[in-house]
Design a binder for these strands. Structure first.
Length: 358
DNA sequence: CTCGTGACGGTTGAG
DNA sequence: GTCTCAACCGTCACG
């Protein structure tokens, strides 16, 4: 029921859009709130403001406030999860090789037995072990010819049969958090790493030294965990690159922190760019502890000041900022100094939500 | 009135 | 370059 919102950039004369929610806040459907706003939500909550009041002040739906706070409470991170991409595959070369070995050693072995052995042998852990059906498929499709008469079983990778060039090369890491969105942290919590980049993030979390040189994988911004900057001393996890990253999705509008300060057209839709200074070291698997619910105001301000100043840092003071100084996302504030560029696809798309606009 | 949650329509990025 | 798929997003409505 949000008001679909389209405007013309007075500067660039390009079409732009946003949508306005019931509270008058501007948002981009499908995209995360700007980090300054996410941060502000957490700040205000830490300062004792009720979620409903935060919702009203920042003009963010209470559902969103609730989600962000819940996420923060669970993970210690204000950052959104990794958007897009594919899940890591469990049928890594190492796993397939092990399955092959098991099958060779005991042609009559059952898939469930293979699964058990993958676990007991430490090839997989309970989070990335293939399902029985996956093992069966592997046996059938990739190793199926293994025991067939006249088909010599070669240790050669049999390119036509074992095709896992697409698999994620994360198998070398067999730590306890490998690969799935479970792990030691909050079970099933959103935003857990699901691709190889994020596995690097895991390593970064567990061993920050492993990260900085991690061989040039392209970090995407949603891979919050995959790149690191210095962590917040208190343990809060947020981005330092919130405002100063030219690639950031919602570049800071001068003068106020607002979700309506969206990115330039050529940046829309991407968090892209080297995110080396963007992320935090902590990630969603970080165990819950008291350190995850730090006192925000004193701890956050020093870290955020360089990137959020001047618009946000003042609000990090222990006292609440004057109403309206934070990030009221009013439609009227949607200064189109930057704009959303509608792709052709978007141009073709009907703003169907218009019909429900008030 | 507040808040948790699911449905919804949307974006994103790896394969 | 395009498509598919499965992840994520915030809003909205409901209880």
């Amino acid at each position: 029921m949000s008001l679909y919102f389209r405007a013309v950039n007075p500067v660039c004369s390009e079409q732009s859009y946003g949508e306005v929610n019931q509270l008058g806040g501007v948002f981009v459907n499908g995209r995360p709130l700007p980090n300054p706003v996410r941060l502000r939500i957490v700040e205000l909550a830490q300062l004792g403001m009720r979620p409903c009041d935060i919702s009203r002040q920042l003009r963010v739906s209470h559902g969103c406030v609730s989600k962000i706070l819940a996420r923060y409470n669970e993970t210690g991170s204000i950052l959104p999860g990794a958007i897009g991409g594919s899940k890591p595959r469990v049928t890594t070369p190492a796993v397939v090789k092990s399955i092959r070995d098991y099958k060779q050693g005991d042609p009559g072995i059952f898939a469930w037995e293979i699964r058990d052995r993958l676990l007991t042998d430490g090839v997989c852990d309970k989070y990335n072990v293939p399902s029985v059906s996956s093992i069966s498929r592997i046996l059938r499709n990739k190793i199926g010819t293994l025991s067939q008469p006249g088909q010599p079983d070669s240790d050669k990778p049999a390119p036509a049969q074992i095709q896992y060039g697409h698999v994620y090369p994360y198998s070398p890491y067999t730590g306890p958090h490998t690969g799935t969105r479970t792990g030691s942290g909050p079970a099933g919590h959103v935003g857990l790493p699901r691709n190889w980049h994020n596995f690097l993030g895991i390593r970064a979390f567990m061993d920050p030294a492993a990260l900085p040189g991690s061989n040039g994988h392209s970090a995407k911004v949603e891979d919050w965990t995959s790149v690191t900057s210095r962590p917040f001393p208190s343990g809060i996890n947020t981005a330092e690159k919130i405002n100063n990253d030219p690639d950031f999705k919602y570049p800071q509008q001068t003068g106020y922190v607002s979700a309506c300060a969206y990115s330039a057209p050529n940046q829309y839709g991407t968090y892209g760019g080297p995110a080396a200074s963007y992320m935090n070291t902590a990630h969603h698997w970080q165990p819950q502890s008291s350190s995850l619910t730090p006192s925000l105001a004193p701890s956050l301000a020093p870290s955020l000041a360089p990137s959020l100043a001047p618009s946000l840092a003042p609000n990090l003071a222990p006292s609440l900022a004057p109403p309206g100084s934070a990030a009221p996302l009013e439609a009227s504030d949607f200064h189109i100094t930057t704009s959303f560029k509608l792709s052709q696809r978007e141009e073709d798309r009907k703003p169907h939500r218009l019909s429900s606009a008030s």
